[in-house]
Design a protein around this nucleic acid. Sequence first.
DNA 1: ATGCCAGCTTAGAGCTGA
Length: 253
Amino acid sequence: MKIATWNVNSLKIRLPHVLDWLAEHRPDALCLQELKQEEKAFPFAELEAAGYHAVVNGQKTYNGVAILTPAAATDVVRDIPGFADEQKRIIAATVDGVRVICGYFPNGQAVGSDKFDYKMRWLAALTEWVGAEMARHPQLVLTGDFNIAPEARDAHPDWKDEIHVSAPERAAFEALTALGLVDAFRLFEQPERAFSWWDYRMMAFRRNFGLRIDHILVSPALRAACRACSVDKAPRRLERPSDHAPVVLTLER
DNA sequence: ATGCCAGCTTAGAGCTGA
């Protein structure tokens, strides 16, 4: 079973890349973030022609998430239950017995800003809910654009901003791992300076000036089934790429 | 210190992203 996450930075623009990637990799679940479109604009027909169903939590201009699967996913939840939020950042569904939570975590803009406060409140609410989901669904994957580089090695040494690498953000990430979730990427040997996002500016991709902020976390019941996890940099090299690359987990099941 | 790029928006320069 193959589960992947990809922040596409506008599905309208990136649909050709997504269709090509689906054809090449045939994932059992592809979690998308930053659709930047409402569900009524979502390309259901094009994806269906490619052999994929979709569950969508859409929003115009900003945010928006979806899970693509070969067969229809079940038990869909949109947004964090009990957390009042205008922003469409969460969708969860069950895929072949695995609970898949797809999240577009808040950016936070700058440590100490209102947006940072929102990020921290959002993370607290998410963590409480994910704990409850894990109790209901022992086989669970939490994936998406976390907008947190969990450790020093997950950011280029020249990254100077505090955002994405600050102590409170890293503590929030550790609160998720304290639930028992494991960063699947770190179960396997990886290249030095392995990142999943590179700024469009300053030739950042060419210089590999990036961050690893897109993650796939697995519950204890899935840990032993993990066979591989890697960043696929190929789509970042295409014309008009997203600024993020997909991250892919292979499970033996 | 700011813009550098990219995508969005009831069309435009401004916001947001990371």
